[in-house]
Nucleic acid binder design. Structure first.
Lengths: 230, 230
DNA sequence: CATTTGTCTATACAACTGTATATTAATGAT
DNA sequence: ATCATTAATATACAGTTGTATAGACAAATG
């Protein structure tokens, strides 16, 4: 699908930024890598610009290549978008690893995990932002790529929840659902946080910590006493 | 911004469906309403097609009008998208009203609310789907429209949570955060449910009920005992 | 060295886009 | 009935789009 912008400066269809490459075209590039295209795409997407609105030609333009060279690495822009999501999976796994590392420091695990997550987000990981923002509209392949990363994150988190519960001799009710809830919440609230100024982030971190604690208390209480709330 | 599909049948950029109006153009329409355009847009968007990819001309085409007539009702497609979100707000308020009505029936409130929500979703409310699927990428005005509806929903839910807590003489910790958590979770899981076959919905409803119960137990326990979970 | 292969760019095509201007048709006022 | 106003359509323009084909260039091979 093509995208076309004839000068609109308002609306959800944002005018693509003009390529800023300073000089005239530099002639033939010696080699064009897949990473060139990924980097170019990342420059184009953002909170106001969905990957689903990217056009092949503007990615090529941003990368400083001829449009036809795009096909050396990707079949179409959807395939590039899916590659972005796959790469974002690495960032998610990095978050988990870092949270595990910090969990060993003896501080509050909920808080340190939330802070870890938010720090990584604030480090302007474009890839992370994409997987958080996108994923509910797009090709089936694209949505599945996002869903895969989400589920992978959930599963890792679930393993951690169970391990920690055993370590601390605490009960846990439905750990998989707990992991799902935490993942969905943290992703949704993390996404919202990205639209707010950084001085609002501590407040949001507090909110997230409180909510996650409610969930933890709830799961422990329900496991221990079988309480059913209405 | 323009969207153009030159025959791609894969990828997140889906080929716009050909207008199916059977006959030749019927000449001048006596009157064109805003609703005509909204209806046309709703026909074009879906799980694989974001509002951010709509072009003015394809909406006009779908509505059977000349492109220039679009400007009689909307400044641009973003304004149309925001109108969709505003209308979706009505559907959300309808859900809350229905949930309140059913809450009076004496059944489990969590379950009946979740079932109400899912029934309304399954009734193929295109508008609802949009507000659930979109909202994290787009123009600032668009995202704010979505956020407004989310917050409105949260506030109504918060009022209900407090009222029910008092009615049942139960404590509640941080009702606003509870409402936020519930809203975010239900919306995220509702969105995911829409991508699954209907025979999976009961299972998903069970999951949602369990998660919401955990949150309720957590908030009540924390209010009652000041427990802090890690 | 010449030739072949691989890679990148240029050109072309047919289609689309948003929006401006001109034209046409319908409605309301006189 | 005529005329003015409003609303819808037609036409035009300049730009974009994905992709096909041709051309140019660099590296590898014999």
């Amino acid at each position: 699908m093509m995208r076309y912008d004839s000068g609109m400066t308002t609306g959800i269809k944002i005018r693509p930024p003009s390529p800023r490459r300073g000089q005239a075209p530099q002639g033939r590039k010696p080699v064009i890598t897949r990473e060139d295209l990924i980097t170019a795409a990342l420059k184009l997407v953002g909170p106001n610009r969905s990957v689903s609105t990217l056009s092949l030609r503007e990615v090529a333009r941003e990368a400083g290549i001829a449009p036809n060279s795009f096909y050396r690495h990707f079949r179409d822009v959807d395939e590039l978008a899916i590659a972005l999501i796959d790469q974002a999976g690495r960032s998610l796994r990095k978050i988990i690893g870092e949270a595990r590392y910090r969990a060993a420091s003896g501080r509050s695990i909920v808080r340190s995990s939330v802070e870890t997550f938010m720090e990584q987000l604030s480090a302007d990981e474009k890839l992370l932002h994409i997987v958080l923002r996108e994923g509910t509209v797009g090709s089936e392949a694209f949505k599945q790529a996002v869903e895969r990363e989400l589920h992978s994150f959930e599963e890792e988190l679930c393993v951690d929840l169970i391990r920690l519960a055993e370590l601390n001799k605490l009960p846990i009710y439905e750990p998989q659902l707990v992991a799902k809830a935490i993942t969905r919440l943290v992703f949704a609230m993390g996404t919202a946080a990205m639209d707010l100024p950084p001085d609002r982030h501590p407040e949001l971190i507090e909110d997230m910590v409180k909510i996650l604690r409610m969930i933890m208390v709830g799961t422990q209480t329900m496991a221990r006493e079988g309480i059913v709330a209405d």
